[in-house]
Design a protein around this nucleic acid. Structure first.
Lengths: 122, 122
DNA sequence: ATAATATATGAACATGTATTCATATGTAAT
DNA sequence: ATTACATATGAATACATGTTCATATATTAT
């Protein structure tokens, strides 16, 4: 019988004899990739950020208007926009005093709309 | 000039005069929908759950093998699988002592693979 | 019945996160 | 220069979350 991955904690129990864990391990997703994916999804894993992205699907909006639209404090909105900007999901354009935010990452936008449709038609 | 949403905090400042906030507000995503989307994405927003889903892309796996594959405690894996099961992302099949988990929601799987490809080819 | 194995689960703990508050920065108007 | 407005930001707070530990449940073998 072939030896398993971690002989100390698991020799030959369970279905280890049938499942080629060594093979699976070799094709396993890396820690870096897994964390990268998680970070992206984490950015979409908050109702406030969902609303922000939804609002910006149509057109760019300034912080103040987003604040009014979501009925939330200006500071909270600003913090979340910075979060989204750090992940390149959103970009900004300054015009005098006001700053306009809009979606930057087209792929995220696709995933967003796709999931929205999924939830509506399920 | 038309009145804005929240006259107390914002009468006519910023770009409020140009942006039809009332119109935007009416087509805004609901709190329920936003929370629903956020919950789905939140489920994908953790490296451990990403690895679990990735591992199950090929075939069903039992808790023990997942535990060995991810090099994590059985309890942690079990907790996360319950999490994913509560959201119908994963389903289980009992066979004697062992329980096999596999992906349940095909749409989540699509989003997952799509995002994985995006990260690899960027 | 007893022991062994596989999984599940509640509680505890440490860490992460979203919002608020106070305040700073930057820009425009008077 | 001073005031008003728009946004940004650090600190504090409250709350959520992931893992571990101990233990429970369930199934199989002896």
């Amino acid at each position: 019988m072939e030896k398993l991955l971690n002989p100390e904690s698991c020799d030959d129990t369970c279905t280890g004899t049938e499942t080629d864990l060594l093979g699976l391990k070799q094709t396993m997703i890396t820690e870096t990739t897994a964390s990268g994916m998680a970070d992206l999804f984490k950015a979409l894993g908050d109702p406030t950020r969902i609303k922000l992205i939804y609002a910006m699907l149509d057109k760019e909006l300034c912080v103040h208007d987003l604040s009014v639209l979501l009925e939330m404090g200006q500071s909270a909105i600003s913090h979340q926009l910075r979060y989204l900007r750090n992940l390149r999901i959103v970009k900004r354009r300054k015009a005098g005093k006001t700053v306009y935010y809009s979606l930057d990452d087209n792929h995220i936008e696709q995933i967003f709309v796709q999931t929205l449709q999924h939830l509506k038609h399920q």
